[in-house]
Design a protein around this nucleic acid. Structure first.
Length: 214
DNA sequence: CCGCCGATCTTT
DNA sequence: AAGATCGGCGGG
């Protein structure tokens, strides 16, 4: 029997082998996956790839430090760092053990536990304020220092990345990464076209325009 | 909607 | 001294 495509599958966790590849390959495939943190669930709508020793914009470019140690560990773990003295940001560690590659989770669309997200983000006014940025996403999901090194495959600290069968977009938005001053020529940001939770329109000339804008 | 700027921790 | 950010404030 030829089962038609996209049968209703249950939720399942992305496997270790999914992450054990180059971050450039993993990043666009994480679009439309789900971050599950306790009761709270968000769909990933924007990511950026970082590539350690070959990437001047990566925290790992100059080698291992106390902060970035998780990036050098095995794939499928969460690298959480403190940014600008104010915010937490979360990455999925990729590549083989010892290779410092990661995918920064930049934006989510709220799916479940939305009341808890509002409570965690008192500054939010509109729904898209809950997860439209790497710091906002962590605050909405309750991710902080305690989650640095968490295993996304076993869910040892309550955080997992799962799929509900929704494929990543065949033609994702793509452009240069946000907030960096070097390596702006590398178009290593991807997003779900048209999603209102994406943090910013394309910039830097490397990518396609914001969907629906001139 | 847009731009400026301060907050305040980590690494160089 | 700069950085993988955000929110409050002012102006259009």
């Amino acid at each position: 029997m030829a089962a038609p495509e996209a049968p209703a599958r249950g939720l399942h966790c992305l496997a270790r082998s999914f992450y054990a590849r180059d971050s450039l390959e993993v990043a666009p495939e994480l679009l439309n996956a789900l971050v599950v943190a306790g009761q709270r669930v968000g769909r990933i709508v924007e990511v950026e790839a970082y590539r350690g020793a070959e990437d001047p914009a990566s925290h790992a470019y100059r080698g291992r430090s106390r902060r970035n140690a998780t990036m050098f560990g095995p794939p499928g773990h969460l690298y959480v760092y403190f940014s600008y003295g104010n915010h937490w940001c979360a990455n999925a560690v990729c590549g083989e053990d010892g290779v410092a590659m990661a995918v920064l989770l930049r934006a989510i669309s709220p799916v479940a536990g939305v009341e808890e997200m509002w409570a965690a983000r008192p500054a939010a006014r509109r729904l898209r304020d809950l997860g439209s940025g790497p710091g906002k996403l962590c605050q909405a999901l309750g991710i902080d220092r305690r989650h640095d090194g968490a295993d996304l495959v076993t869910g040892d600290r309550g955080v997992r990345i799962m799929t509900d069968g929704t494929a990543s977009p065949p033609q994702p938005g793509n452009g240069s990464r946000v907030g960096i001053s070097t390596a702006q020529d590398r178009p290593w940001r991807w997003w779900v076209p048209g999603d209102p939770n994406v943090s910013r329109p394309a910039s830097g000339g490397a990518g396609r325009k914001w969907p629906g804008k001139p």
